[in-house]
Amino acid sequence: MSVQASPASPPVRRVLLLAHTGRVEARDVARAFVKALASHDIRVRALADEAADLGLEPADVDIAVDEVSAAVDCELAIVIGGDGTVLRAAEITHDHGTPLLGINLGHVGFLAEAEPDAVDATVGAIVDRRYTSEERLTVDVAVFRDGELVSSTFALNEASVEKAARQRMLEVVVEVDGRPLSRFGCDGVVCATPTGSTAYNFSAGGPVVWPSVEALLMVPISAHALFARPLVVAPSSVLAVEVLARTEGAGVLWCDGRRTVDLPPGARIEVRRGARPVRFVRLHEAPFTDRLVAKFGLPVQGWRGAVDVQRRTLDA
């Protein structure tokens, strides 16, 4: 007598939810996502403190034991908040390579993909897997003191070396690919990725670099020097900033504005292309130019490019 095997159950689909729960709108949007995804048999995982802030029980969401394992087996992470929340999500998911889908509740939201009023459309794209992911270059950052490695981390946007005290200028020597480039006093030095080119790098006067360009950026902040220009170097280059040993000014390293390391005189910071990129979910293929115009509110009135293209097409 033969026994017919029962059909295997489909694998459970699971997404991680990370939200800026200090904002009422973020809490409302997060709960809407949980309810909508559950109706399509997609489980949501949340950090314990965020689940409590949202008023969700274990019956509603899977509770993550800790941040280290929160993204395990999640096909993507829905991130509800501003760019700061996305940077926190990148930190939590970095080791697992989980794609991030940002829902913008911030002021600019360069890292976000969707708006909070599009919950149904976004859930539909997730359910039907109508999305792609793109990789963004990161940097690995190492801090040395007396030749000894004392700290290492990564950054999605930038690693910035800054003066620790307002009244003290930071004296540094900057280096590219093992060769000294210039020495100057400054408020700091930003080492950024193309993704971070529209963040701190932009505020410091650095260039905007399209995300598809693989490069590293170095931008001095308020440098007292004849040559202290923004630099764009190859992605294989290694950038270094040395805080001069014979100086009264100490510094501090900030990575993505979230993680800090104190830098005494003599400290050396090395920045190189990261071993692991961060992945972002894309729901549609919008040109980066359009994103710049929308996020910065750039004036484009009077542009006739589309008219010219249409005319040339009709005349062909």
Results as ranks from 00 to 15, higher is better:
E113Y: 11
R27K: 12
H224I: 07
F288S: 10
V281A: 07
V15G: 01
R276P: 06
T198K: 01
F288D: 05
S69H: 14
V174Y: 02
V161P: 08
S222E: 07
L17D: 00
Y200D: 02
G109H: 04
F154T: 13
S39M: 12
G82R: 00
S2W: 11
V139N: 12
L263A: 06
R27A: 06
V15T: 09
L111A: 06
S6F: 08
P211K: 13
P265T: 09
H284M: 13
V34Q: 01
V213Y: 03
A275V: 13
L292D: 08
V238I: 10
P11W: 02
K295I: 04
R23S: 11
I269D: 01
G106A: 10
V86G: 04
R27W: 01
E285P: 02
Y200C: 01
G22H: 04
V219W: 02
V150F: 05
P287M: 05
V68Q: 14
R229T: 14
R136H: 14
L244S: 08
A118D: 15
L105A: 03
E75C: 14
A225T: 13
L253A: 12
V238P: 02
F33K: 09
A36E: 15
R279G: 05
H284Y: 06
C74D: 04
T198Q: 02
V233Q: 08
L217Q: 11
V119D: 11
E285G: 03
A112F: 08
Q167L: 14
A64L: 02
T193I: 08
E75W: 07
